[in-house]
Design a protein around this nucleic acid. Sequence first.
DNA 1: AATTATAGTCAACTTGATTGACTATGTCGT
DNA 2: ACGACATAGTCAATCAAGTTGACTATAATT
Lengths: 157, 157
Amino acid sequence: MTHEVFSKLDLTSLLSLSFSTSINELHERLSELGFGDIRPVHGFMFKCITPNGATGIELAEYLGITKQAVSKMVDYLEKSGYVMRKTHPTDKRGKIIVLTERGWLVVKAKEKILTEIEQRWIENIGTERLQMLKEDLTKLVYEANEDKLPTRLRPVW
Amino acid sequence: MTHEVFSKLDLTSLLSLSFSTSINELHERLSELGFGDIRPVHGFMFKCITPNGATGIELAEYLGITKQAVSKMVDYLEKSGYVMRKTHPTDKRGKIIVLTERGWLVVKAKEKILTEIEQRWIENIGTERLQMLKEDLTKLVYEANEDKLPTRLRPVW
DNA sequence: AATTATAGTCAACTTGATTGACTATGTCGT
DNA sequence: ACGACATAGTCAATCAAGTTGACTATAATT
């Protein structure tokens, strides 16, 4: 694909490719660090869990999947040593999912790698332009969500 | 989610939410026009098909799925009246997938709706800023792909 | 002409989700 | 305080959308 081809992409293709590009690089790097069993949704889940844990319902809403899907995912991540279930402090029905030490390592690694990706983006388009890009996307997402149910993170396809 | 919450989102969350926001609105609008059986991947497939058709292999590469998945998708879209298979002009093994009249209606509708979404984004952040946003994303995606296999449209999750 | 590669389809399988039911617990209205 | 209703999380079954490997007909290569 030449630059000319890219410049003719519509908005949704541009956003999808931008997302795929950054998330692919992130997970290649995480793999190199020994976190090859982490999928993008796991990284987003860990973000929601920090710093104090989250309930299954909170994770389901945040990620845009059902509570049963969250339950299965937590089963898998618990078995892989990234999260733990704890009893809810005030609701006996509930569980709080928290990160293990290994889970925190993923969160730190992700932050570091994303900082490096952004650094390279800054070298490409400049600090001010990246700042504006993020401000504008934030504004547009905020506006689109201010009187609706929040858009779920999970990209529909 | 308050504006403060949005402004703390990392890059990958921002891009995912931006994509979801725009693609959700697009498909709500397409649904209103009677194209409720179209998924985002179909819209991208139609884009790849225009104007002269595409082979199964081309569609698979463009969308980031296997040729069998494309075959099944084309089965479905053929049955729904959006595409047709034609024999390849020069390769007897091959098929060319082309759009029907109804398929072209979807392409036109998508273009119109995306123009309207962009128009509203212009009202929000200004013509110049949207222009810069698109230029910057184009630049970043292009740079990330110039010496690699192309990033596939399909967002990994 | 023989060998190797490819396009598309087939059937079977896998993955990651959803659905509806269930139990234990929490909330609300009287 | 109690009964009715709602909810959190789990269970088993199911489904959608993909992948895999095999296959045939055709194309390309040697």
